[in-house]
Structure formats: structure tokens, C-alpha cells
Amino acid sequence: MIAYLIRRILYAIPILIGVNLLTFALFFVINTPDDMARVQLGMKRVTPEAIEKWKEQRGYDKPLMFNTQAAGSDKLTDTIFFQKSASMFVFDFGYSDDGRSISREILTRMLPSLVIALPTFVLGLMFYVTFALLMTLFRGTALDVAGVTLCVLLMSISSLFYIIGGQFVVSKLWHWVPISGYAGGADSLRFILLPVLIGIVAGIGSSSRWYRTIFLEEVGRDYVRTARAKGLSELRVLFKHVLKNAMIPILTGVVAVIPLLFMGSLLTESFFGIPGLGSYTIDAIQAQDFGVVRAMVFLGSALYIVGLILTDISYTVVDPRVRLQ
């Protein structure tokens, strides 16, 4: 397994270089360093000298990918692409265009994102699986129809509606929790209750229907019939045997997103005033801050690769037949 993991990590390097190259190309097809300078310097009293100075200070006065004026290897290394990309492979993200340390910013904002995303993910998963198993248990009955109808209904509603509606009812009318805001430590509980609840409710429709489909496929298999023939209760059949055997497709969808929980949610964090990573990339795109955009895309790609490797490892845990070679 170690050899397999090393091989996967080595595969990741060209993928990350490719992602980096693509991000660079897409960004600079749309923006020029002059555009970036103008956005940063604002609209009033911006002189051409100020633009040149801004570019020089941040290394955007170099050629994009190939420096014809340089000699030897400097032709490739004395460029914006190389200067801005090489350090990322040791996770040194440098500074944003307004002079802040990107690594520090990511570390600071990661935790609040995780505080919301992790309980939403764990509690949500537990609820969706339980709800889907209950629908499977009552398959073909009025309860199943009601459950599926509820799922379709919940899927049809925009997540923004859940947020605004939840804030209106729970915070504004009932005064149970703050409408928005965040605090560290134990006090954070008051602030995360509502976004977590809304996150779970918003996911019920799609997730529960998906798990129900998986479970329905499993309950028709021979081992389930055998289990029932042995006299096991239906609950035990479902929660022990069916759930265990349905883990592979569940894990495929679930484990890969675990590392991405750090990246936060734009809408939730914006409406609830959570100081997380959710809006960091979007804000950077709007501000044409290439330093932050490349760092976040790189980090997202790296985390996704980690997620896929974890998914492979998780297969070996739930299914002894799977071996990583």
C-alpha cells in the first residue's frame, strides 16, 4: 500500500503543475498586470507611474512565461509564471496583492469554515443515511411516498431560501440564536446551530434520495434474503448488513469531499458572517488578486487529490477484498 500511495502522490505533481498552468493561462487571458494594478490602486488619481511601481513591487513587471531578454535558464525562471508558481509546491503561498500573508490568512480562516462544515457533514450524513434507510424499510408504503415527496420538495427549494427563511423564523421571529456572527470557543455553539441546521435541511432532499436508491438496490440481493431467512429483524438487516454492503458507493461520494470541508461555503458564510474561507477565492477573483486565486486553486486541487487517495484507502477498510497495489 505504501508503494501505491507514493505512486499516487507522484502522479499528483504533474496534475498540480497542469492545474497551475491552466489557472495562470485563464487568469492572464482575461487580465493583464496593468488591469490588476488599476483594480488594486482604485479609480482616483492613478498615474501610469503608480501602475509601473505597483507591478515592479509585486513582480508583475516580468514577462508572463518566457523571458527573451534573460540568459540561460533565466529565460524560464525570470518570469511571472515561475516566480509565482515554484514556491507553491512547498506550500509557500507568498503574499496577496494587498500585502497580507496568504498562508496566514488561510490558516486563520480555515477553522471557522471547518467548525460549520464538519458538524454539517457528520450530522447530515448520519441523518440522510438513517432517513434513507427508513424510507427503504417502508418502501412501497404511504410513508415511503411521503418521504420521497418531501425529498423532491426540499430539493426544489433554493439554498438561499433556507438561509433567509431560517434566519427570519429562528432568529428574527423566535429570537433563539443570533442572526449572524461568530465567536471562538464554546460560545461558537450559538452561532453555528442555525447554519448547521440549515445546511443539514438543505441537503436532505438530494442526499437521502441518492442513498435510498443505493439501499433499494442492495435490499434485493441474495445475502439480504439469507439474512431475513436466518430470522434477523428488518432493522438489523438494514442497519447492519445493507448499510455495510452499500458503503462503497457511499464512500465514493463522501470521502473525497472531506478535505474540501476546509474550503468553506460561500453563501452560508456570507449570510451568517462566518469568517471562513468560503468567500476568499471569490473576493480574490473580483479583486483580480492572482496571488490568492492561484493559491486557492492549488490548495483545492491538492485537497481533492488527498480526498481521492483517502477514498481509495477507505475502500480497503470497508471491503477486505480491495487491495491497493
Partner: peptide
């Protein structure tokens, strides 16, 4: 100073006296 990016929470918190 609290960061409020959205107008709806801002407005409702004002009405609540916050």
C-alpha cells in the same frame, strides 16, 4: 465594527437593537 456582507442580516440585527 462587525463585517456584514449581506443587507438582510444587517437590517434585521439593526431592528433587534444590535
Amino acid at each position: 465594527f462587525s463585517l456584514e456582507k449581506e443587507t438582510i442580516p444587517y437590517w434585521n440585527k439593526f431592528l433587534q437593537g444590535y
